[in-house]
Structure formats: structure tokens, C-alpha cells
Write a protein that binds this DNA or RNA. Structure first.
Length: 488
RNA sequence: GCCCCGUUCGUCUAGCGGUCUUGGACACCGCCCUCUCAAGGCGGAGAUCACGGGUUCGAAUCCCGUACGGGGUACCA
């Protein structure tokens, strides 16, 4: 029987959570959930220069926003902590000592300059350019004496010569062989005693009993080195799944140039967490090749590492937008009303009490809006006419609609209807619908004139509904104002 | 230099030796619906499966090579 699945997402808090990292988190999380495993969040904050508390908090917030919950890690605790690398120094020290004792690590006294020169020379000659093992055969006593004398040194992994190729059993790419001769005696611990990434990450993954490592493609080439350390430390080697990168629209590395890279920025742009999650999940994974709407619940049940694709993906903002639109449209009216209200409160167009007191009214408005937007940021501009006393009519709407033949006449005819009509949507619809016929004007001319008068713009939610929701007094007032300005 | 990885419509992908003159989705185009904008419905165009060799009765699918792209080769992660 195999061990219970344990996976982790280990961001380094040198920046905010970007979409690539988010996708890695999603895959780890979805995989853990789909097999009933444990999802661990670990903060790889070994870079003291660039790691910040703010970034850590930001990352946690972004994950929570996306709906990704972790079983162990910051804020949660767990039996395998601490979950910050900066707090795991003892583990690294012990692991290094274990390797020294076993003879699988040795001290190296070469200086950075010497190494750089040798590397340069080796590269010119062609072929292997890794460490040349100068210090590997210094006898232990001499080495101990030099260390005792305070000579600066790092600790290197002693790669055994007689080992066959290291095979990385990658779930995404299949078995990949790395010749042992291409792997050099890399540094485990720096001269200041701190562990290098390739060492620390193995110690952590080993101690935390990770069964699967799902991470970015950029780590694939480091994996054979890490496997060597897993073996030296006596840990079971986990299975790997390396995810290809996400690129910008020009096929280059995703960067600010392509718009947003951070999850937080997408939230600000009006994307729903559900749609970002869905989109990212599908960027390199598919349920069946046909289904495009894959919710968190489906992911938690149906995700499988076997269906991850190997090729890099280009981040397609248009598809994300489309997807966001479908999630917005599928939202229950009550839910959308609440989110809409929150935005209106932020924009200081209404108060929270306004919403509480007129919930039904907002619920009625909801589908009118949700059906015609792709981003939540479009809400306020689309409905603001309902929450202001008067409305600005822009130049274009005036010349292209109000000053056209028939516009004034339409408004004049509509006015008494608005003043006296029973105020229900059905009654308004019935009364206004026949206007073009009676005036012998095109529906477009009549209704656009009314629309501009009522909403101030040429594009709005459906006209009769807009008038109905605006209420009689304001509607009448606006039409009167426009008539007056056209006649003057 | 050396070691690895990748390459199916513009984009995300399905495909794991015959059912593929490659299926779906976004985007695009046209028509329908229509009070604007959307949404929705219907239809269209778009991929010599990077290229060249093999293996096989048969290859997008297996093997080799080439090209292009990417990663690693750090006392970065």
C-alpha cells in the first residue's frame, strides 16, 4: 500500500503571488484534494534580502481569495513545522552533519575566483564545466585541520562515480535520464553555514514526507541533483511532476509588459476568483478536451496529474475575460446583487443601508447588468445613472442621437406617458412600445433618444427596465430637462 | 560548450498505431433574434499535426536526426 499523498506549494516571498505560482498551487491543491491527500503550504524565505513579511501575507491572501485552502502551514500549523525555511536551520544543520558523517559531503576550500576561472577554462575546452573536484580528495585530517584553523569553506555533495544515470520519474514527461557524469559536486552549505536551495528544499521535502513534488519546469534540471541528496539522506524519493511555463502573448516570459502578472492585480481588474481559478487550471490541464467550465468542486474531484500537458502555454487574456463573463452570468441574482452593491458602496454611490433596504430592487437590477459585462469593474459605469440626481450627456450622444430628426418629438410624446402611466414594467412596456408606430419613426430613433435622456449614454441596460428602476420622478425630470435644452 | 525539456488551427487544448480528409473552446467572419450594448441560436473560415528520414499493412501518435524555442550548468530560488 502506498503512503498517503502529501504535496506542498513552497513560494518564496520575494514578490506577490503571480499567475504561474498560482497555477502551481492550484495543481498541488487539486491533486491533494482529488486523492484525499494533504496539501502543505511552506514559505521558502531563505533569501533575506528579498523576502518580506508583506509579500508573505499577500501570498496567503491571494491563495485564500482563489479559494485554495491548505492543511498545514502558516496560520494552520501542523505536525511537520515549522513551515518557514528561516525557522528550519536546525534541520539543515543536522542533515548536513548526517551527510558528513556518512561521507557523502566534503569540505571545499576553493575560492569563488578560482572556481570562476576553472569554469571558464572548462567551458572553453568544451564538455563538462562543473566543479573539478579539487578538494574532494583532501584527506580528512588535513581538511579538519584547515577548518579548525578557520579557513573558509563550503560543503559539497560527493557524487559517486559508480552510480548509473539518475532517472527522474516525471509524471508529466515520463522518465528522463541524466548521465551521472553531467552532475557535479554542487554546494550544499555555503561558507556562512546556510544551506543552498537544492539542499534545503530536499531536507524539507524529506522531513515533511512529501510524496509528490509538483512544481515549475525550471526545476527539472535540478531534480537529479536533488534526488542524489534524497538518497544520501535516506529519504524515499518523491515522484515529480514538472509544469511547463506560462508565457506572455509574444511567447516571452510573462512580465509586467503583458499586463498583470499578480493574482491581486486580476482581482483589482474585476476578475472573479472562480474564473481565474478555472482559467489557470485549464492552462496546461484538461478534463476531457471538451469541457471549458471546470469549477473548484470539479477540480477537487476530477483533477489528475496524468492529464497535465507538457507544452508551455501562452496566457490568453481574452479567453480569461470570456470565462469571467460566463461566471458573472451564471451567478445567482442575489449573489451578483450583493457584489454589485459592494462596488457601489465603494464608489460612494449608495450606502450599505440603501442596499439592505432595497434588496429586492437590486436583485431585479442584477441580471440586467450581469448579462452584459465581462469584468466587475464595468458595473459602476453601467448603473451609475440610477444613483445620481442628474445625468451628464456627452457630446457624442447629443449630436448622434438627441439632435437627430425625430428625437425631440419622441421625447415630447413619451413625457406624458411617463407622467401618467401606471408604474409597472408591464404597463410601461405596453405604453412605450407602440411609440415608433404612432410617430412613424424607426424604433431605434425613438428609443435611443429616450435612452440618452434617461441614462446619459447610448449604451445601457434595457430601456424600459432602466426607466422603471429609475422611478417616475427622476425619469420625468430627465426627459423634461433634455426637452428644455433642445428647445433653447 | 555540455546536460535536459518542448513543438497539433492566431491562442488554450483533445488525440496515447487504424474509428482523424485532426474534435472542442476563445478570438475572428456571416446570418438570426433585437429599444442600445451584450447574451443567446445557427453557420463559416482557420492546422500540409515544426522539418527530414526510418519502423509498420497502416503514424499526429513509435524511433533517429535537423531546425526553432525554453530550462539547467551559481556559495539565486
Amino acid at each position: 500500500m502506498s503512503k498517503p499523498v502529501r504535496v506542498r506549494f513552497a513560494p518564496s516571498p520575494t514578490g506577490t503571488l503571480h499567475v504561474g505560482g498560482a497555477r502551481t498551487a492550484i495543481y498541488n491543491w487539486a491533486f491533494a484534494r482529488s486523492v484525499g491527500g494533504t496539501f502543505v503550504l511552506r514559505i521558502d524565505d531563505t533569501d533575506p534580502e528579498r523576502s518580506t513579511q508583506e509579500n508573505t501575507e499577500q501570498i496567503l491572501r491571494s491563495l485564500e481569495w482563489l479559494g485554495i485552502d491548505w492543511d498545514e502551514g502558516p496560520l494552520k500549523g501542523g505536525d511537520f513545522g515549522p513551515y518557514f525555511q528561516t525557522q528550519r536551520g536546525e534541520s539543515y544543520k543536522a542533515a548536513l552533519q548526517k551527510m558528513i558523517d556518512a561521507g557523502s559531503a566534503y569540505p571545499c576550500f576553493c575560492t569563488a575566483e578560482e572556481l570562476a576561472e576553472k569554469r571558464e577554462a572548462a567551458r572553453k575546452k568544451g564538455g563538462f564545466s562543473g566543479y573539478d573536484r579539487t578538494c574532494r580528495d583532501i584527506d580528512p585530517e588535513t581538511a579538519a585541520a584547515r577548518i579548525a584553523a578557520g579557513e573558509p569553506h563550503v560543503w559539497r555533495l560527493k557524487v559517486s562515480d559508480d552510480r548509473g544515470p539518475v532517472v527522474v520519474d516525471d509524471i508529466v514527461r515520463g522518465a528522463t535520464e541524466f548521465p551521472i557524469t553531467a552532475l557535479d559536486d554542487f554546494v550544499l552549505a555555503r561558507s556562512d553555514g546556510t544551506p543552498t536551495y537544492n539542499f534545503a528544499t530536499v531536507v524539507d521535502d524529506g522531513e515533511m514526507e512529501m510524496t509528490h513534488i509538483i512544481r515549475g519546469d525550471d526545476h527539472l534540471a535540478n531534480t537529479p541533483r536533488q534526488i542524489l541528496v534524497f538518497e544520501a539522506l535516506g529519504y524515499d524519493v518523491p515522484r515529480f511532476a514538472h509544469l511547463s511555463m506560462i508565457w506572455g502573448e509574444d511567447g516571452k516570459k510573462l512580465s509586467k509588459r503583458h499586463g498583470a502578472t499578480s493574482v491581486e492585480a486580476y482581482a483589482e481588474m474585476g476578475y472573479l476568483p472562480e474564473s481565474l481559478l478555472n482559467y489557470l487550471a485549464l492552462l496546461g490541464w484538461s478534463l476531457d478536451g471538451e469541457t471549458t467550465i471546470v469549477t473548484a468542486d470539479v477540480l477537487k474531484k476530477e483533477f489528475s496529474l496524468e492529464r497535465i500537458s507538457k507544452n508551455p502555454a501562452i496566457f490568453d487574456m481574452q479567453k480569461l475575460e470570456w470565462m469571467n463573463g460566463t461566471y458573472i452570468r451564471d451567478m445567482a441574482a442575489e449573489d451578483f446583487a450583493a457584489r454589485m452593491a459592494a462596488l457601489l458602496v465603494d464608489a460612494e454611490l449608495i450606502s450599505e443601508e440603501d442596499f439592505e433596504n432595497q434588496r429586492a430592487w437590486f436583485v431585479e437590477l442584477a441580471p440586467l447588468v450581469s448579462e452584459r459585462i465581462k469584468l466587475m469593474t464595468e458595473v459602476v459605469p453601467m448603473v451609475s445613472f440610477l444613483f445620481t440626481d442628474t445625468v451628464e450627456i456627452d457630446e457624442k450622444s447629443r449630436t448622434k442621437v438627441l439632435e437627430k430628426e425625430g428625437a425631440l418629438e419622441s421625447l415630447k410624446t413619451a413625457l406624458p406617458i411617463l407622467e401618467s402611466c401606471e408604474w409597472t414594467l408591464e404597463a410601461l412596456d405596453g405604453a412605450l412600445h407602440t411609440l415608433p408606430e404612432t410617430l412613424e419613426l424607426k424604433p431605434r430613433v425613438v428609443f435611443q433618444a429616450l435612452r440618452v435622456a434617461i441614462t446619459g449614454t447610448m449604451v445601457s441596460p434595457p430601456l424600459f427596465e432602466s426607466i422603471f428602476l429609475l422611478e417616475r420622478d427622476r425619469s420625468v425630470e430627465r426627459v423634461k430637462a433634455v426637452i428644455a435644452s433642445l428647445e433653447s
